[in-house]
Design a protein around this nucleic acid. Structure first.
Lengths: 338, 338
DNA sequence: AATAATAGGTTAAACGATTAATCAAAAATA
DNA sequence: TATTTTTGATTAATCGTTTAACCTATTATT
């Protein structure tokens, strides 16, 4: 079955495509088309199963009603969830979403931008890779609206949706201290990501404030060698003569690997050590004890990102805005399985 | 900065858009455009940062070079991973992907199809919801190429990429028996999904063959009440006077919830009961013992789906094909943490 | 020198939709 | 009755590309 066009309806009814277009777009306010004709067109469109050609419409109108989403990796729970909600909110507003993956590679981010630009997306939602400031700068020059989500660069004045990384990390660390931890370590990425550094800074400041900061137990792992580096990091932390009794993980992937290593080393996460993880994960629910974690308001982040972007696209707003949402500390302390 | 069109290059150089188009598409075989002109056009295009308008091209050529992917939920690890690979393979072939989520709702699947159809996708990759046969039938009538992945309907002769659900379930159950299980239960969805029923059938046939099938310990849970129903199911299974010593979970979500309940009930998964899960999950790696699971070849599924679809789109093939890939039983028996 | 062939382009229609400008006929007003 | 308004459409240009068909000046052939 060939696709049905406006013209098909028009010729079958012996009218012009203009008339059909007006009717089908509800643009015949001041009675430009008679009621009878309107009905006939509506009926015929339904009969023929007419579906407008979005390419043609987009070309003519100069808008594709499509936005691009650039994430590190959709198969990651955080990004997958973000993508899901962004799609839902975007679709509600009549936009579709094309996703690009960067795998945290700068080059891949550049490719994704070009790919999406060529497809006439009207705006981008981006979780930027490391060192991508110049790409964002170039993007600003093209006047293509975009909003950063999850990560940003403090030196760039762009629209972004972030969480209160510093503060929630500070508070979560305080929580560990309050639970009685005397010596708290940290495992973070070696990368230069502002949002992750903020988490680290929040944790470290809380430790400093409590007079228990020791740079010797702040461990760094590489993204590309996460598993082995985490093993080494946990090994280091647990073999210090002055044993640690608490640890803060700055990302979800580090949390999972860290917990895995602790379990592997037969360290009792309830008794021997207290932990603090970033992001929710199925794995935490499967364990026989509560794993406290920092829960990001992913749905809200998606909602804000979509709304800000569409406001920019539709020129409702010109200025750059920074939205900071509050993450939540989930202690799950009332959860007692054993 | 306004977007640069062919015409911009043409007028700056004082030539026609036709010439520019020919050069930029490498269509000036028999020296239709002089070397000098060719170079000038190439240079100017680079200088102006020309990016072709895919909408216009798509309209003119009658092809959007876009495919649609319909999944239950991208935030789910299985679908997220599938989406990731499908995007990678599609992009390699010059296609972009628009994703639609159904949340397992028939109505949402219909919406997704319409939405993607309007956006002129050239084909669809679909993980079909329950009872969606008529939608697929309609789709067949429109001549829009599509391929089903993960799930299919045996009564429909359509192109699909599946795994050997029956066989791998049979073999995995045998594995449990071989490990010494005498009484094996099962937890599956109440839904009418062929692929899940095949898993159930595989398990049941293996049990029958071993003379240990008991319909009384085949539990069903509802998708919308997964957590509470799984709790009840595990409760039922473990409270039989004739205790079970093995259990087969037919999906990943059931597996996770099932394992969680077992741990909650303080049942030793190594000693008291043997389990068999479907699909890989972070949660399985975090536990202090090996969790055997059936690993689907997601990357291969994606690759096959994309290739089959593009073959159909590009008319390299007309016939419907069924590809069945082999899942792998991952025992992880050499994994000993404690 | 006359003709044919080639090189190096250009023209113009088309894809499907939108919309400002226009128009003819009918109805209303003077 | 002559003129203006209103009603209910149509015309035609346009968005950015592609491409078959055409054209012209130069070079090659006889």
């Amino acid at each position: 079955m060939k696709r049905v066009s406006l013209k098909d309806i028009a010729t079958e009814l012996g009218v012009s495509t203009a008339t059909v277009s007006l009717v089908l777009n509800g643009k015949n306010e001041k009675g430009r088309v008679s009621k009878k004709m309107t009905q006939k067109i509506l009926d015929k469109a339904a009969e023929l199963n007419y579906v407008p050609n979005t390419l043609a419409k987009g070309l003519k109108m100069g808008k594709s009603r499509t936005i691009g989403l650039i994430v590190a990796d959709v198969s990651n729970l955080f990004f997958g969830t973000l993508a899901l909600y962004i799609q839902i909110f975007a679709e509600e507003k009549g936009y579709s979403v094309i996703i690009g993956n960067t795998n945290e590679q700068l080059k891949a981010m550049e490719n994704a931008i070009n790919f999406l630009y060529a497809r006439q997306v009207e705006g981008l939602i981006i979780t930027a890779t490391e060192k991508s400031q110049h790409l964002l700068q170039k993007l600003t020059n093209t006047k293509m609206p975009f909003v950063l989500v999850d990560r940003s660069f403090p030196e760039l004045s762009v629209t972004s949706v972030l969480i209160n990384n510093y503060e929630i990390s500070y508070r979560s660390t305080e929580q560990l201290i309050q639970k009685g931890c005397k010596r708290i370590g940290l495992v973070t990425y070696k990368q230069d990501h502002y949002h992750i550094n903020e988490r680290r800074r929040g944790c470290e400041d809380a430790l400093k404030h409590a007079g228990m900061y020791d740079p010797d137990i702040m461990e760094e792992v590489r993204y590309d060698f996460l598993e082995s580096d985490t093993r080494r990091a946990i090994g280091n932390l647990m073999s210090k003569k002055d044993k640690i009794d608490g640890v803060f993980f700055t990302t979800n992937s580090i949390s999972i690997n860290g917990v895995k290593e602790l379990i592997k080393k037969n360290i009792n996460i309830q008794k021997d050590i207290q932990i603090m993880c970033f992001d929710e994960n199925d794995a935490f629910y499967i364990l026989p004890y509560a794993v406290p974690f920092i829960k990001q308001p992913i749905k809200e982040m998606a909602k804000n990102a979509v709304e800000l972007l569409i406001d920019h696209i539709e020129m409702k707003s010109e200025e750059t805005k920074q939205v900071v949402l509050e993450a939540e500390l989930v202690l799950n302390e009332n959860r007692r399985y054993l």
